[in-house]
């Protein structure tokens, strides 16, 4: 739900302000790759109606955001192309290599799924780099990144809950480790987010 909220905040910003200033297209494209490689089981692995609907929402909204940033006349002009310089392959290639080395089963679907878990953990990095370079971070962008970080932190709590409360719960070390790293990457952002919130000041990251 926090993940869904983050997407709603981002779409709200882009749609109402007709601007994507401060939003990293690189991170959006990495997320698209994360969702495509993870939800290859969309038709073969039915978990629940909720699960299927959320998968479709995450996939379509991410491609919608990318379309807005690349294709929409006004939104495209507000994109900070010169600042958003992080290279995809710096993250994609190491994650692919890691997925080929560390996985639970050597099948195409499993390796791609593992790759998506690793890539998700670091997909925020281009956005954090852009954020540091952006002087005026608007509230919607700040809250968007906060929700994007919070959903994995909340997963950590959910994993602990499931571990103790569910009888047939399986240990999933790859997901747990990647989730911990993903949350740790946000630690710095969370610190400045709460600091600015407490002081009622505009969010600003130190250079």
């Amino acid at each position: 739900m926090t993940h869904l909220a983050s997407i709603c905040l981002l779409l709200l910003k882009i749609h109402t302000m007709k601007s994507c200033a401060g939003v990293s297209l690189k991170t959006q494209e990495l997320y698209a790759l994360v969702f495509v490689t993870r939800y290859l089981d969309l038709f073969s692995n039915f978990v629940s109606m909720y699960n299927t609907i959320m998968k479709i929402i995450f996939l379509s909204s991410t491609f919608g955001i990318i379309w807005y940033m690349r294709g929409h006349k006004l939104v495209r002009q507000s994109y900070d192309k010169e600042q958003d310089t992080f290279r995809h392959y710096f993250l994609v290639i190491p994650c692919m290599v890691l997925a080929l080395v560390i996985h639970s089963k050597f099948t195409l679907l499993e390796v791609l799924w593992t790759f998506s878990i690793y890539l998700e953990a670091v997909a925020i990095l281009p956005q954090l780099v852009l954020l540091q370079r952006t002087r005026n971070i608007d509230n919607l962008t700040g809250n968007y990144i906060f929700c994007l970080g919070a959903y994995r932190a909340l997963y950590l709590l959910n994993w602990i809950y499931r571990y103790f409360m569910e009888k047939n719960y399986h240990a999933q070390w790859i997901t747990w480790m990647a989730g911990m790293i993903q949350t740790a990457i946000y630690a710095d952002f969370f610190y400045y987010y709460f600091k600015s919130w407490k002081k009622n000041e505009r969010l600003k990251l130190p250079a």
Binding site: N45, S48, F58, Y155, A171
Partner: peptide, 10 residues
């Protein structure tokens, strides 16, 4: 042998 964790998360 242990079965793999079912993929029930997003």
């Amino acid at each position: 042998t242990k079965t793999a964790a079912p993929k029930d998360e997003l």
